[in-house]
C-alpha cells in the first residue's frame, strides 16, 4: 500500500477532497472521523490491501494519517 492508496481510502470515508488529506492531518480534529468510522476505515484497508489489522498496536497509531501509514507499513 502506498501513501497515495491510503489517502484515497481516507478521502472516500471522510468525504474530504484528496488535497485536504495530509501526512500531518489528525483524524479526529482535521478529518472529523469518529471512532466507528475509524474501525470502518481500518477494516477497509485490511480488505483492500490485505494488511493485518494487528499492525495497529495502540491509539497512537491512529492519531494522524502519517502515524497510520507508518503503522500499516512497519515490518
Amino acid at each position: 500500500m502506498t501513501f497515495d492508496n491510503l489517502k484515497h481510502v481516507i478521502s472516500e470515508i471522510s468525504k474530504l477532497p484528496l488535497n485536504e488529506i495530509q501526512e500531518h492531518s489528525s483524524f479526529k480534529e482535521d478529518l472529523e472521523i469518529d471512532s466507528l468510522q475509524m474501525v470502518n476505515l481500518v477494516i477497509e484497508i485490511q480488505t483492500r490491501f490485505g494488511i493485518d489489522i494487528s499492525k495497529i498496536q495502540s491509539n497512537d497509531d491512529l492519531v494522524s494519517v502519517g502515524s497510520m501509514f507508518t503503522a500499516f507499513t512497519r515490518e
Binding site: 469518529d34 471512532s35 466507528l36 475509524m38 495502540s58 491509539n59 491512529l62
Partner: peptide
C-alpha cells in the same frame, strides 16, 4: 465519553 475503540480496549 467517546466511543474510542482502542481506549476502550485498553
Amino acid at each position: 465519553e467517546s466511543f474510542d475503540v482502542f481506549k476502550i480496549i485498553n
